[in-house]
Computed example of a mutant assay.
Amino acid sequence: MMQLRVSSKKQAKIKLALQGCAGSGKTYSASLLAYGLSGDWSKIAIIDSENGSADLYAHLGTYNVLSLQDNFTPETYMEAIEICETAGMEVIIIDSISQCWDNLLEYHAGLQGNSFTNWQKVTPRINAFMQK
């Protein structure tokens, strides 16, 4: 049954991907977008898997950086997101997820058996990461 109700503001989350060639301004643009969303640099975190590239834009404001070093599994990214959420970050930039995808491709390539059906071992992991 249809029912009319009064509008109410709800907390909405956005998932946005920026794509471009190296040096095209993805991190810079993501940082400015993050500030536009939060209005507070201290509530922005960059999960950096790009060897410190997040620090290139420190002149913009005092945002937070969580560096990933060697382990680029989806589970590592999910743990990094959890750390940011627990710290009260309102906007989390992941720069970048390319290493995660490469990790999953290597994992898939190393699986025995049918390549097509082996994706059922990979897909839940990437889906869990995307949901997080």
Rank of each mutant, 00 (worst) to 15 (best):
Q69D: 09
A12Y: 01
Y57R: 14
F72R: 03
G61K: 09
D40R: 09
L66C: 02
S8E: 12
E79K: 09
S29G: 10
A30C: 05
L32V: 04
S29D: 07
E82M: 01
T76Q: 12
Y57P: 07
D55R: 12
G36P: 08
K10L: 05
A12W: 02
T62F: 08
A17Q: 13
I92N: 15
A12D: 03
T86N: 15
Q19W: 11
L16Q: 09
E90I: 04
G39Q: 08
S31C: 11
N51P: 01
S67N: 13
D48Y: 03
S8T: 15
S53K: 14
S8W: 15
C84W: 02
A17V: 13
L32G: 02
A22W: 05
Y63P: 00
D95M: 04
N51W: 03
I81M: 12
M78S: 15
I47A: 06
S49G: 15
I93L: 00
G52A: 13
C21E: 09
L16R: 12
I92G: 13
S8C: 12
K13P: 09
Q19I: 15
A12N: 03
M89C: 11
A54L: 15
G25M: 02
S31E: 07
V65Y: 05
K43P: 02
E90M: 08
S24L: 07
L56D: 01
E75M: 03
F72M: 09
V91T: 13
A12V: 06
I47C: 11
L33D: 03
V65L: 03
Y35H: 06
A34P: 08
S7F: 05
M78P: 12
D95F: 04
T62L: 15
Y63C: 02
S53I: 01
K10R: 10
L60K: 07
G39K: 14
C84Y: 00
G88A: 02
A87F: 12
T76Y: 04
I46W: 08
Q19N: 09
S49A: 10
L33C: 13
G23M: 09
L32P: 01
N51D: 04
N51L: 00
E85T: 14
V65W: 01
Y57D: 07
G23H: 10
G52Y: 12
D48E: 00
D70Y: 10
A87H: 11
S29Y: 14
A22N: 09
Y63M: 02
D70Q: 01
E90C: 04
A54G: 09
Y63N: 03
E75A: 05
M89W: 07
C84R: 06
S67G: 12
I44S: 00
L16S: 05
A34S: 10
Y28N: 06
S31F: 08
M78N: 05
S53Y: 07
A80F: 10
G23Q: 04
T73Y: 01
V91I: 09
P74H: 10
L33P: 08
E85L: 14
Q19S: 10
K10W: 01
K15V: 09
S67T: 14
P74S: 14
A34H: 03
A17T: 14
S8N: 10
A58T: 09
K15Q: 12
L16W: 11
L66Q: 06
Y57G: 05
T27C: 10
G20V: 08
K10T: 06
E75W: 04
A30Y: 00
G25P: 07
T27Q: 08
A34T: 02
Y28G: 01
A54H: 07
I81E: 07
G88S: 05
G61R: 10
